[in-house]
């Protein structure tokens, strides 16, 4: 052992000198590059959406002002107002949330506050399977089951073959597991002491769930709903298949609001639907059609980004409350 001699000298200092470990450096360098690739992806998305959109807005037929104010989207006629597509997206999103929020929250409350382990053991895997089913299969389901069902209930003259309602309900089913699992996580994070305190005051289980646990988990639940909303906005296959390829151009002054503009029984193209349909042919580069999908894509990207950061902000506030 070196310790017996007790040399504290220059040789020791020399031995302790920092080694140059080239292999280690190469490894860490490439790991860093792997991490940085994600930045490149974001830059790529922003750059591609931005630059192609710029080309779009440079076209003679297009103006930024009209893009955001006009309520007619008719590329063949040189009309590029994004509102009909946003309308389609919003209609489907709202219907989807109307379906998914009650189901998702009830499921979450039931699973978190009521269910025995055995019942949980049955329902949880079912919800997980629902998550794993590809959206195109949900699209098939909308066309082959939901649309015919709605048409037989409300009459074929009322409900179109392509309609927002069918698409919205199926998108809702698709985001149920997302909302329920996020809400369940939020409720699981509520400290048990809070539940015990409420039971100790003589509250019933329902009162504990709805008056104590849900309010305490409210921001987590809200964040989950916002995430679900963002998923619905970005969902493509179900809406492309079930809601049709015709933008719902409207004129607020002339068209009946409930009979036409907000009518759930007729089709309306969404932003994602437009992108998918336009790109599914052999689209040629640098045409106005090609560029227009990027302008829509940019709008879609900003909308989902906004929703996702909103949900993160809600969660952050919630954390502060608890600390």
């Amino acid at each position: 052992m070196t310790s017996e001699t007790g040399v504290h000298d220059a040789t020791m200092a020399e031995q302790l000198k920092r080694r140059n470990r080239p292999f280690e450096r190469v490894i860490v360098g490439s790991l860093f590059i792997s991490g940085a690739i994600s930045i490149a992806v974001t830059i790529g998305i922003l750059w591609e959406l931005g630059s192609e959109s710029l080309l779009f807005f440079r076209e003679d037929e297009v103006s930024l002002g009209k893009f955001f104010t006009s309520t007619v989207w008719q590329p063949q006629a040189g009309e590029f107002g994004i509102w009909p597509l946003i309308l389609g997206t919003l209609l489907i999103t709202v219907i989807a949330l109307l379906v998914a929020v009650p189901i998702g929250l009830s499921a979450a409350i039931y699973l978190s506050e009521y269910a025995s382990p055995r019942v949980r053991g049955f329902f949880k895997p079912v919800l997980e399977i629902l998550v794993g089913i590809p959206t195109v299969v949900f699209g098939f389901f909308a066309i082959t089951f939901m649309t015919p069902l709605l048409r037989s209930i409300f009459g074929e003259s009322v409900v179109g073959f392509f309609n927002v309602l069918s698409a919205g309900i199926v998108v809702g089913l698709l985001i149920v597991p997302l909302i329920s699992s996020l809400a369940e996580d939020a409720m699981a994070a509520v400290p048990n002491s809070l539940r015990q305190a409420a039971y100790g005051l003589g509250a019933s289980r329902l009162e504990v769930s709805l008056r104590v646990v849900v309010p305490a988990a409210l921001s987590g639940i809200a964040a989950g709903i916002v995430i679900g909303m963002s998923r619905a906005v970005g969902e493509t296959m179900v809406v492309t298949l079930a809601s049709g390829a015709a933008p719902r151009n409207f004129d607020l002054a002339a068209d009946p609001v409930f009979g036409y503009v907000l009518n759930p029984f007729q089709g309306a193209q969404t932003m994602t639907g437009y992108i998918a349909i336009t790109a599914s042919g052999d689209i040629s580069y640098d045409t106005i059609d090609y560029n227009s999908i990027f302008a829509i894509g940019l709008t879609l990207f900003l909308m989902t980004l906004g929703l996702n950061s909103l949900s993160r902000r809600i969660v952050k506030r919630y954390r502060q409350e608890y600390d």
Binding site: G6, V7, H8, D9, M12, A13, L16, K17, R18
Partner: peptide, 10 residues
């Protein structure tokens, strides 16, 4: 450590 400062940069 043996007279060398282990927090020295090198």
């Amino acid at each position: 450590y043996h007279g060398t400062n282990i927090y020295a940069g090198d």
